[in-house]
Amino acid sequence: MLETLPQAVVTGVLLGGLYAVIGIGMSLIFGIMKLTNIAHGDIMILGTFLTMRIAQSLTGNPVIALLLTIVIMLVFAFAIQNFLINKVIAKGAEPALLVTFGLSIIISNALFLVFGANTRTIPSQLVTTNLIRTAHVSVSMMYAVNFIVAVAVIAVLSLVMNKTSLGRAIRAASSDTVMSELLGINTKHMYVYAMMLTVVTAAIAGMLVGMTFPFYPTTGTQYLIIAFGVVVIGGMGSLPGTLVGGIILGLAQLVGANFIGPTYQQLTGFLVLLVILAIRPQGLLSKAVRK
C-alpha cells in the first residue's frame, strides 16, 4: 500500500487537474449568476460527442475538431442562456435550477437517440505514451496534458475575467446588477457571454475526458457531481480555488482507493465531498458565503 502511495498521489493530482477543467465552467456560472447548472456535465459530454464525431468524419484530428465543436457550442450556449435561463433567472434559484435539470435530461437523451448507448472513446496516442516511467511512478502523457491544459485554461480564464473589458463587465454584472445597468451594461447579455465562456471550457474539458476515459450519453451526470465537488471544495465562484478543489477531489479518490481498494475510488471521493459539504457548506476555500 505504502509503496503504491506515490503513484496514487501523482495520479490523483494530475486527475485533479482534469477535474478542475470540468468544474471551472460550473464555478464561473455559479459565481456570476448564482445558478447551479445541472446541465453542466451533459453540456460537456455533448462537446465530447461533437468532437468525436467531427474528428471521425471530417478532420481526423480531435484538436481541430475541437475548434468546430466550440463554434457549435457557442451557438448552443447563446440559445439556452438567451431563450431559456435568462427568462427565469430573476424568479429565484428554483426555476432556473429546474430548467437546467430539464436541459440535462434533454441533452443526454438526445445524445442517446443520435449516438446510441454504446461506450465510445476519442482515440489518442497520448493515453499509451508515458512521460515518465520509473520503478515507483509512471506518468501517462495524457494525464500530464490534462493537467497542463487545466492550468492553462484556468490562467486564461482568470486573465479574461480580470484583465479584459468584457470580463470586468461580467464581474460587475454579477456583483451589482442595478449599478451595472446604470452604467449601460446589459446584464442579461453578460450572462450570455458568461455561458459562452463556460461552454468553451466545457468543450475543452469534454475533449480531454473523451481522450482519457470511455464515455456514453449518460456519463454527463457523473461529471456533474465531480464538477460540483470541485466547485464546492474550491469555493463557489473562485477560479484558482477550482484547481485546488480538483486536486483535493482527485487525491481523495486515488489515495482512498490506494488504501481501501480500487473499487472504492468514486465512493471515497463522494464521501469526502459529503463530509466537506456538511462541515463547511460554503466550501473549503471560500472566505465567506457571498450573498
Partner: peptide, 23 residues
C-alpha cells in the same frame, strides 16, 4: 449531514448520498 446543507447544496448533497448508495 444533509440538513446542514442549504438550498442547492441540499439538492446535490442528497443526490451524492444516492450515488454513494449505488456504489
Amino acid at each position: 449531514p444533509v440538513f446542514k446543507m442549504q438550498g442547492v447544496y441540499f439538492t446535490i448533497g442528497t443526490w451524492i448520498v444516492a450515488e454513494c448508495l449505488a456504489l
